[in-house]
Computed example of a mutant assay.
Amino acid sequence: MAKINRVFPHITALLFRLFFGGLMLTHGIPKLQNLLTAQEVSFPDPLGVGAVPSLILTIFSEVVCAGLLVLGLATRLASIPLIITMLVIVFIVHLNDGLSGQELPLLYLIGYLGILLLGPGKYSIDYLRK
Score class of each variant (00 low, 15 high):
19 F>S: 08
20 F>K: 06
20 F>Q: 01
22 G>V: 06
24 M>T: 05
25 L>R: 04
25 L>H: 04
25 L>S: 04
27 H>E: 09
28 G>T: 05
29 I>V: 15
29 I>Q: 06
29 I>N: 11
29 I>H: 04
29 I>S: 01
30 P>Y: 07
30 P>F: 14
31 K>D: 00
33 Q>V: 15
34 N>K: 13
36 L>Y: 11
36 L>R: 01
37 T>G: 03
37 T>V: 07
37 T>A: 14
38 A>F: 10
38 A>I: 02
39 Q>T: 15
39 Q>N: 15
40 E>P: 08
40 E>A: 13
40 E>V: 13
40 E>Y: 12
41 V>A: 05
41 V>Q: 11
42 S>V: 15
42 S>I: 14
42 S>H: 14
43 F>I: 06
43 F>M: 09
46 P>Y: 11
47 L>W: 08
47 L>F: 11
48 G>T: 10
48 G>Y: 13
48 G>P: 11
48 G>I: 08
50 G>W: 08
50 G>V: 05
50 G>T: 12
51 A>D: 04
52 V>C: 03
54 S>Y: 10
54 S>W: 07
55 L>I: 02
55 L>N: 09
56 I>S: 05
58 T>H: 10
59 I>W: 03
59 I>M: 01
61 S>K: 07
63 V>T: 09
63 V>Q: 14
63 V>W: 09
64 V>K: 02
65 C>G: 00
65 C>A: 15
66 A>Q: 02
67 G>K: 00
67 G>L: 08
68 L>W: 00
68 L>M: 11
68 L>P: 02
69 L>E: 00
69 L>F: 05
71 L>A: 04
73 L>W: 00
73 L>S: 02
75 T>I: 03
75 T>R: 02
76 R>E: 06
76 R>Y: 03
76 R>G: 01
78 A>Q: 03
79 S>E: 01
79 S>I: 08
80 I>K: 00
80 I>S: 03
80 I>G: 06
80 I>R: 04
81 P>T: 06
82 L>M: 09
82 L>W: 08
84 I>D: 02
84 I>S: 08
85 T>W: 04
86 M>E: 03
86 M>Q: 13
87 L>N: 10
87 L>T: 15
87 L>D: 09
88 V>L: 12
89 I>S: 14
90 V>K: 05
92 I>P: 01
93 V>D: 12
95 L>G: 04
96 N>T: 12
98 G>Y: 08
98 G>E: 00
98 G>K: 08
99 L>R: 06
100 S>C: 03
100 S>K: 13
101 G>S: 09
101 G>P: 10
101 G>D: 11
102 Q>C: 07
102 Q>Y: 03
103 E>H: 05
103 E>M: 06
104 L>N: 02
104 L>D: 02
104 L>Y: 09
105 P>F: 09
105 P>L: 11
106 L>E: 01
106 L>P: 04
107 L>D: 02
107 L>Y: 10
107 L>H: 02
108 Y>S: 06
108 Y>A: 01
109 L>A: 03
109 L>G: 09
111 G>T: 12
111 G>N: 01
111 G>W: 12
112 Y>W: 10
113 L>D: 08
